[in-house]
């Protein structure tokens, strides 16, 4: 199922799920930083950022679904 085929509820669930994963990745990063894992900490940090990007993708999809169009180019 493509992102554009999702309904309102599925978009909202996607946003919340991504947000939770991003928060968890931030906490794991903090734990690794406290353990002195100065290289390894970048793995959850980057995964967290990727989930934030995906979360935004869902936000954009939801707003397009509700507005019925994309934003004009600028």
């Amino acid at each position: 199922m493509g992102v554009m085929d999702m309904d309102d509820k599925q978009y909202r669930m996607g946003i919340i799920a991504c947000m939770i994963v991003a928060i968890c990745m931030g906490l794991i990063t903090s734990y690794l930083a406290r353990q002195g894992e100065n290289t390894l900490l970048f793995v959850p940090l980057l995964i967290g950022m990727v989930f934030v990007f995906v979360m935004y993708h869902f936000v954009e999809g939801l707003s397009e679904l509700r507005a019925g169009s994309k934003v004009d180019d600028y």
Binding site: A22, G26, L27, S30, L41, L45, M49, V52
Partner: peptide, 18 residues
């Protein structure tokens, strides 16, 4: 601070980049 700042980092920088 140690814990919350990496969470804040993910959102502040991730969304800032978006």
């Amino acid at each position: 601070n140690d814990y919350i700042w990496y969470v804040a980092f993910v959102f502040l920088i991730g969304l800032g980049l978006v």
